[in-house]
Design a protein around this nucleic acid. Structure first.
Lengths: 107, 107
DNA sequence: AAAATATACCTTGACAGACGAGGTATATTG
DNA sequence: CAATATACCTCGTCTGTCAAGGTATATTTT
């Protein structure tokens, strides 16, 4: 992992929600997909990931259910809620704005 | 101030260094300039600013001296060091990369 | 003349998010 | 049968932000 976690902070929840807008998913897979998409340059540490899930659940942005795997390790799936989709769009807008402003300050 | 501080986190030092690459400056002025450039949408809280100065100084990225105002409140000026310029370029590169990766993850 | 505002600096303590380190359990591969 | 991959989880530490408090000088308003 090469990107300072302070640069990701504030985007963790947004990234997870982004992943869930595509399909229901579970922790381990979300992480794998992020690593695949960023060529392993970015990774959510699992402690970070599960902390984020608790937060998202508490805020009603995701709902959760256990998978019915008959074989292999059990999976806890997450699903984005309607509120989650709204918040996701807001976060994305905020991110775009923050990006522009930071860029305008860097010479 | 409308931008979540978690989105700025990790860029505070970079933003201060950016400001100092243009000219030596002092806390109050740096903050005013940031507010002016971002139309007051972004602001570094002064506690955050002074914490950052201590950190930058400790790491040898800035040096400091007292202004010689004969009138008005005293000013503590900061000057970016050679090392500071190098670190600034690195931070900027990291920021560009983080930006790209986050963008690639948001749908 | 007193009060308010602007300039300018600073410290302390609380809080939130990231994550290292530790743990559990199942399935596959060497 | 040991190692690795899959899959989940918690606890405690660390770091950066910032609210709240403080000091001091100069100007503007009442």
């Amino acid at each position: 992992m090469s990107i300072a976690s302070d640069l990701l902070r504030g985007n963790t929840d947004t990234i997870i929600l982004a992943s869930l807008t595509e399909h229901d998913s579970y922790g381990y897979l979300i992480n794998k997909e992020i690593m695949a998409k960023t060529e392993a340059q970015m990774e959510l540490k699992d402690a970070t990931l599960y902390t984020a899930f608790r937060r998202l659940e508490k805020d009603g942005l995701v709902s959760t259910y256990w998978g019915d795997e008959e074989v292999g390790a059990r999976r806890r799936y997450y699903s984005i809620t309607e509120k989650g989709r709204e918040v996701y769009e807001q976060h994305k807008a905020e991110w775009r704005k923050a990006k522009e402003m930071i860029d305008s300050l860097l010479v």
